[in-house]
Simulated assay, not measured.
Amino acid sequence: MSKILLLGCGNMGGALLKAWAANTDHLFTVADPAKPELPENVSQVGSVEELGEDIFDYLIVALKPQLIDEVLPTYIPRLDPSGVISSIAAGYSAEKLAAHAPGRSVIRIMPNLPAVIGKGVSGLYAHGTVPETASSEIERLALCSGEIVWVDNEDMLDRLTAVAGSGPGYVFEMLRAYVEAAEELGFCEKDAKNLVLGTVRGTLDLALQSDSSLEDLRKNVTSKGGTTAAGLDALNGNGEYSELIRNTLQAAYQRATELR
């Protein structure tokens, strides 16, 4: 049974903690001066002084990146010499984390928003030499909130951030525009939202359950000269939509590398 200290507990950190505390037998302590509401089986302190003499096996950083340099050094002495630092903070590199605690292993976790309902996709990156027991333990935590993908280097984690970490934002924007267009066709806001979300949910479930490629599935619903063909021609007839998606991911990836 590991002792885990979570630095910060905002929306994402709190959601992940709830899943971790419900699905593992670790002893969790949260350090957050805001004293957020926590699961009953989680301890809480507002400062390092309140920890007493406690030493932890894992220190998980869930702070805003701009606070890490100020807060993390204060809590490093409470990490066991063989302990592991992990982080869910976007835009703060593993190398920077390791610099605060030379000799300690570092694992970054890049979750996305659906993790708050247990349907996320998280990227994991182990910096340097990480004990197998530690990578397995962090993997177990990440699996509590959905699917995981391990990557071999931090650049790939930035690429994953562009695809999955930022991805829910792209999807929400596409859904917003889709609903707005449905309203302009004459549907009320409620019906437009139900039509769009129901269509997307059903289509996604079909794609997940089918062995066919996405291209074949698209072809199956597209009759030559029909309504779907007309819509698809307007959407991506000259590849504009494909190019827009490529540009979207490239822009997010570029920003991720700048923040690193």
Results as ranks from 00 to 15, higher is better:
185 L>P: 00
186 G>H: 04
186 G>W: 08
187 F>M: 12
187 F>W: 13
187 F>P: 05
188 C>K: 09
189 E>T: 13
190 K>L: 10
191 D>R: 15
191 D>M: 14
191 D>C: 06
192 A>C: 06
192 A>D: 05
193 K>Y: 06
194 N>A: 11
194 N>T: 11
195 L>I: 13
195 L>W: 06
196 V>S: 07
196 V>A: 09
197 L>N: 01
197 L>M: 14
197 L>D: 03
198 G>M: 01
199 T>L: 10
201 R>T: 13
201 R>P: 02
202 G>A: 00
202 G>H: 07
203 T>A: 15
204 L>H: 01
204 L>Y: 02
204 L>T: 12
205 D>Q: 06
206 L>H: 12
206 L>P: 02
207 A>I: 12
207 A>P: 01
208 L>E: 11
208 L>G: 06
209 Q>N: 15
209 Q>C: 08
209 Q>A: 14
209 Q>E: 03
210 S>W: 00
212 S>M: 07
212 S>Y: 03
212 S>W: 02
214 L>T: 13
214 L>D: 11
214 L>W: 02
215 E>S: 10
216 D>Y: 15
217 L>T: 09
217 L>V: 10
220 N>E: 12
221 V>N: 00
222 T>N: 01
222 T>E: 07
222 T>H: 01
222 T>D: 11
224 K>M: 02
224 K>V: 04
226 G>T: 04
227 T>Q: 13
227 T>V: 13
228 T>Y: 05
229 A>H: 05
229 A>Y: 09
230 A>Y: 01
230 A>L: 12
231 G>A: 05
231 G>C: 04
231 G>Y: 03
231 G>I: 12
232 L>V: 05
232 L>Q: 07
232 L>C: 11
232 L>A: 03
233 D>W: 04
233 D>H: 12
234 A>Q: 14
235 L>C: 04
235 L>H: 00
237 G>F: 10
237 G>H: 08
237 G>L: 09
237 G>T: 08
238 N>M: 08
239 G>D: 02
239 G>R: 07
239 G>T: 04
240 E>Q: 05
241 Y>A: 13
242 S>P: 06
242 S>W: 05
243 E>K: 11
244 L>V: 07
244 L>C: 04
